[in-house]
Design a protein around this nucleic acid. Structure first.
Length: 577
DNA sequence: GCCGTTTTCGGCCCGACTGTTTTCAGTCG
């Protein structure tokens, strides 16, 4: 609603308010919980305290939470009863042109626009500032919109992006190229692919990009920027720059937008000007070649891309309190791996060998348990048989001189009332017990909280797998009292999982950050159902980094013995209570 | 409407591309 208000103020030609509402909408979106929950718990002053939200908009949000709307919203909607978000989502159609469409032809919906395009194309082309090409462009945008897939999970897009990058690196004149944008920040979903290229021949680059086999439509083509639609259903922007500007351009095109604006504003306060060509003092370029030297010139340490969301990282950098993030490659084990014993596609031994070859030194086999009937979940007797199999695999590997351990775990179902579908005696035999929510996703928050707390307090539960049970684009996260749950995790030592399977990526970055602040221990797991999935662990690390997690907070960066000792210590702690 | 190492008024990121214009408006990122 805030976003729509911004768009309608823009339609009305009101200056500055559009940006203010846009910023406020971004602030609301950045919250780790629904804004109305924060309002109900902490009141309107807590909203006013958010960056970009002042007295007026805080009041609007309060109105939305209590009445479902606010006066300005109703007035603007009456003035422009138009599906603004749907329509402005079309490439090339913004609020100003939308206003013309509405006032001249009464266009309110995509369907109205389709009709006008079909029946009155010449009248459209006669609007002030419009022409034949504007109309043709709009027609193409409408067709493209039907094939747009929205934001997709990072892990599903990254391989394609990296393949395209390799092709671009081979174009003549190209000196350097890198993926920038939200992919470089390792945001959990990707809306488009940004590629930065240092080249001596920008025209050749543009020609080569539009000729890529993946390209289905060209939005624009120029010597500095070429923008295309890919067959994946996503857009790709390729920017050409001179090699001397690499750092400034990479910084600029990595974003986020909010980070850039904050950084630029800060640079200005120091008497500099910052843009994609460099950091300038008057006409003199102070820094441009590397990101490091630009941050250094602004008296800041290097801020890793994963943190660049304007979520306090610039203040932390200036104050010297930036965390030392868990490095890539730091995981020694994978805490959640499936096999053919339930819904995996490979045997325990095959998964173990694949993990060993990929550089890990242990995995926990965590097949599903009884109540998850669709996966053929294991009962106590099957778990005993599986233990035998794991002993056999460990013995085989040891005989071959492979220093690798398969741990016996399980992904135990958390039942509606918070109890587990496997007996205590059976759980006690396992090296590593994870619990997962696979049913009753929409319980009221109080009940869901109680259910999770039950599992967290259980003496034999080591890990809460994929804590919110969301599936990106398909299922919303379950709602619970985050504060209560994390407080309990910190106290009991029960670890929180970062499930790195691309459409889970659960916990989210904002939840991880809250957990880290509370002192909750984490694990990163891949939820691998096939050997190739083991590679997702670096995306899990990326997610941990986006949650400001240091290496010490992640248990499976420990060698296997220390990892097991840690779980054991926490079990006895819970038993003592 | 928001905000403050240019603070409670007076600013608000800025450059590229397109299509329409003869110098710029709209859109995008």
């Amino acid at each position: 609603m805030l976003e729509e208000t911004g768009l309608r103020y823009e339609m009305a030609g009101v200056p500055f308010k559009p940006r203010a509402y846009e910023r406020a909408a971004a602030a609301v979106r950045a919250l780790p919980e629904p804004v109305c929950e924060r309002y109900r718990r902490e009141g309107q002053e807590a909203l006013d305290a958010l960056p970009g939200i002042g007295e007026s908009i805080a009041q609007h949000i309060a109105d939305i939470c209590t009445r479902g709307t606010f006066p300005e919203f109703d007035e603007l909607r009456k003035r422009f009863p138009v599906a603004v978000r749907e329509l402005t989502a079309l490439e090339g159609l913004g609020p100003k042109r939308l206003r013309l469409l509405y006032e001249a032809f009464g266009v309110k919906t995509l369907e109205d626009l389709r009709n006008v395009l079909e029946h009155k194309p010449h009248k459209l082309a006669g609007l002030p500032g419009w022409g034949e090409k504007t109309v043709a462009h709009l027609r193409e945008s409408l067709a493209l919109a039907q094939q747009t897939r929205g934001r997709l999970p990072l892990g599903f897009i990254l391989p394609s992006a990296e393949r395209i990058l390799q092709t671009i690196l081979a174009i003549r004149g190209v000196r350097r190229a890198a993926i920038a944008g939200s992919i470089r920040r390792r945001k959990e979903t990707v809306g488009d692919i940004d590629i930065l290229v240092a080249t001596t021949d920008p025209e050749r680059l543009a020609e080569a990009v539009v000729a890529l086999p993946e390209v289905v439509h060209v939005h624009q083509k120029g010597s500095a920027r070429t923008s295309v639609r890919l067959s994946l259903g996503l857009d790709m922007d390729v920017r050409a720059i001179e090699e001397e500007r690499w750092g400034a351009a990479l910084l600029y095109f990595t974003g986020s937008r909010a980070h850039n604006i904050h950084l630029r504003t800060y640079a200005e306060s120091m008497g500099y000007k910052l843009n994609e060509y460099g950091l300038f003092q008057g006409k003199r370029c102070v820094a441009a070649e590397t990101e490091e030297e630009i941050y250094a010139a602004l008296h800041m340490p290097y801020i890793p891309p994963e943190l660049r969301e304007d979520a306090g990282e610039i203040e932390a950098a200036l104050g010297g309190t930036l965390p030392t993030l868990v490095p890539y490659g730091a995981l020694q084990g994978d805490c959640q791996v499936h096999s053919t014993w339930t819904d995996g596609t490979a045997s325990i031994e095959a998964m173990a060998r694949a993990a060993w070859e990929s550089g890990l030194s242990y995995i926990a086999i965590t097949d599903h348990t009884r109540a998850l009937a669709m996966t053929g979940g294991l009962d106590e007797r099957a778990l005993d048989r599986q233990a035998e199999e794991i002993r056999r695999v460990n013995a085989t590997l040891q005989k071959e001189g492979i220093a690798f351990r398969v741990l016996h775990g399980a992904e135990v179902n958390l039942l509606k009332d918070g109890s587990l579908d496997i007996s205590r005696e059976a759980l006690a035999k396992l090296d590593c017990v994870g619990v997962g929510v696979h049913s009753h996703f929409s319980l009221p928050p109080e009940e869901q909280t109680k259910r999770l707390l039950h599992a967290i307090e259980h003496p034999l539960v080591d890990i809460i797998f994929h804590p919110t049970a969301r599936l990106i684009g398909r299922r919303d996260p379950i709602t619970f009292d985050v504060d209560a749950v994390f407080t309990a995790c910190a106290r009991t030592g029960t670890a929180l999982d970062i499930d790195a399977f691309p459409d889970r990526m659960d916990a989210s970055d904002t939840l991880i950050r809250q957990a880290v602040e509370k002192g909750v221990r984490l694990v990163v797991s891949t939820d691998a159902h096939a050997p190739s999935h083991l590679a997702y662990r670096e995306l899990g690390i990326a997610q941990a980094r986006r949650g400001w997690a240091p290496k010490e907070s992640i248990l499976n960066t420990l060698p296997v013995d220390a990892f097991l000792a840690h779980l054991k210590r926490n079990r006895s702690r819970r038993n003592a209570r």
